[in-house]
Amino acid sequence: MKISLFITCLVDQLCPQVGKATVEVLRRAGCEVVFDERQTCCGQPAFNTGYRTEARKFAKRFIEIFEESDADFIVSPSGSCTAMVKHFDELFAEDENWRSRAARIAAKTYEFSAFLVNVLKIEDTNASFSGKLTWHDACHGLRDLNVRDEPRKLLKNVRNAEFVELKNADVCCGFGGTFAVKYPEISVAILDNKIAEIEKSGADAVVACDASCLMQIGGRLSRLGSKAKPMHIAEILAAQE
């Protein structure tokens, strides 16, 4: 099975180790992994701020690049960027041709944890991590892609780790893209509820499948000097102690 990686710009630039872990897990699962270096960004920041003309450029470029690939699936370590790909067709309300091209690309694009569980049928990646883990449901993965049980199944099978359910795991962390800097006070007020629950859970690592939420949660944890670390699910699943 051939996978074309959609690595996302946050992972590319800020946390490349997540990308590396993603490749490792997929290869260990027997997939052939390719990466098209022409890819950049899915255009989500533009789309979410209302700049549709700009977003359309990104969408077209993305579609053209990934259409060329003979990969069976496109897999991304981000729920919200995957969700953006699923929104591409809405950018072409009056253009049948692009709309159907967008829909075809969207149909083969998967968020990483959902791909493991639902396509590869893998719930145990032979990972090992000593410590207490908890899961934060990033909003787009949860509500746009309906990914809820998949990461939990995977995390519960990690050796040496104890999985604890986070209270209000499905409540937003307050990131919301430009929202986090347009309304930083509200964003942080929401975030602080999340932080309080993470602290209460006693987790060593709060795990998610979105670099953006992890940046928000991690940024605050680090500022407050918490012992809990933000970790991407790929990092946990790749870990072998």
Binding site: I7, V11, D12, Q13, L14, C15, P16, Q17, G19, K20, V23, F35, E37, A180, V181, K182, P184, V188, L191, M215, Q216, G218, G219, R220, S222, R223
Partner: peptide
């Protein structure tokens, strides 16, 4: 400024994923 008033910001990694891909993974 709005970000870092309350949250630490991450830095750009010394080696991006695409660089790692080229050197270690491809």
């Amino acid at each position: 400024g709005a970000w870092t008033a309350w949250r630490d910001a991450p830095t750009v990694a010394p080696k991006s994923f695409r660089e790692i891909w080229k050197s270690d993974l491809e």
